[in-house]
Simulated assay, not measured.
Amino acid sequence: MKDAIRVLASGDHFIAPQLFVEALQKAAPGTALEFRTQTTPWPHTPFGPVGNVKEASGTEDELLEALGDAEVALVQMAPFTDRVIREAPNLKLIAVARGGPVNVDVAAATRAGIPVTFTPGRNAAAAAEFALGLMLAALRRIPASDAELKKGAWRGDYYAIDNAGIELDGTTVGLVGYGAIGAIVARVLRAFGSTVLVADPYADPARAAADGVELVALEELLRRSSVVSLHARVTPETRHMLNADNLKLLPKGAVLVNSARGELMDYGPLPALLESGHLGALALDVYDVEPPPGDWPLHRAPNVITTPHLAGATRQTADRAAAITAAQAAAYLRGERPEFVVNPEVFEAAKSAGGGQQS
């Protein structure tokens, strides 16, 4: 009988290790598997930089102890740094249950011949719904009126025309980024009756036309949109893509929503734009520093809604992430190339060397 394949299921208090275990057992029936488990402290303890990776939870020493001689790792937040990869010679696959493997030193894994998989779309529905919720909350003053009523203030003056909210029906909404999340947001906005603009140089024009959205340059989107919502990935090209120069292009009173990544925006000019009324409202789920400090200027600015990076926090996201991650690992164990691999060149290198993955 073939020896069992040793697997580390490294979860946390969102995706429990047992969820990985059950998902892989379902995805790879009949495969002899021997599991080790680890639970990192996220989200009870915020993630952050560990070693030479970011957005990780736990320590390198804890991960190395949990790994032991594991060949396959199904992981959510654990820090697969250069050091961890160097000190885990038996490791053959890192399957990450996130939209991008930001907690993995992909270059180190590639040098070691280790494929790294990821889970695109795992939280697309959750993040899209949350972004729409932030839009509605900002446009209709829902958090502010709730807080004021609980303090005994009946703000009937919100019915005064100068204070009244704005409907999504008939409003032009600009989406920066048109991946899985942006496409869902657009579909719902179209059902509301919004005109939807999209700024994404990589979007498929045929798909955009079929979806009923208009592809435009970022500057045009900012000039024409009463609501702008960010759905892009952070790359050198997109870092601080919204900044002091182009935020001025927004129409007076526009609403800005960021539930994607804090690094997409320069947060510095936002307090002044809110104080002047040029920016009508700001809704944030992500920040340039997480969590933002107590003296953060936007805590004191008017018409700001803030939530603690919750867009993907649904039970369905956890189940979906575990299932997609397990499917990648199961494909590898069958001797196939997984569908979502961030460094496919490791397979070409192995093929050139006359080798291949072990099944």
Rank of each mutant, 00 (worst) to 15 (best):
E62K: 02
F340R: 06
A321S: 12
A350K: 02
A210K: 14
D61G: 10
G152E: 10
A330W: 05
R140H: 11
L136N: 04
P49W: 13
L136T: 13
D69R: 03
P89R: 10
A164N: 13
V176F: 03
A144F: 05
R315M: 14
W42T: 01
A78K: 00
V304E: 02
V53Q: 02
I184K: 13
N123C: 12
T45S: 14
R300N: 10
D162T: 15
K351M: 12
L249R: 11
L264W: 01
S226T: 08
T110F: 05
L264D: 01
A283S: 03
P293M: 08
W296G: 01
A327F: 14
G99W: 02
V216W: 10
L168N: 02
F47R: 10
G177V: 02
N52R: 07
G277W: 09
P41G: 02
T235E: 05
H299A: 12
L218G: 02
L230A: 04
D157Y: 14
M135W: 05
R83K: 07
P292E: 15
G356C: 04
L247R: 02
H278M: 07
P297Y: 00
A180V: 10
A124F: 06
D169K: 08
V7W: 00
Q76K: 12
A318Y: 07
D245I: 05
A16N: 15
V84F: 05
A23V: 12
V84N: 02
T37V: 11
E60K: 04
M1E: 14
A97N: 07
A23L: 06
V196K: 08
G30R: 11
P338F: 01
N258D: 00
T119F: 01
L273A: 14
P236V: 06
A326D: 03
R337H: 15
E167I: 11
P46I: 03
A244Y: 09
P17Y: 04
V185Y: 02
S352A: 15
F347E: 11
D3M: 10
D319I: 09
Q316F: 08
S225K: 02
S259E: 06
L256N: 05
N90L: 07
A272M: 09
P46M: 13
G165H: 02
V96L: 07
A153E: 12
A329W: 00
L274W: 01
T314L: 11
R187E: 13
G212K: 03
G193L: 14
S352L: 12
A349I: 09
A78D: 00
E71P: 15
E219V: 10
V116G: 03
Y159F: 13
L175R: 06
A209W: 12
R111I: 13
I5N: 06
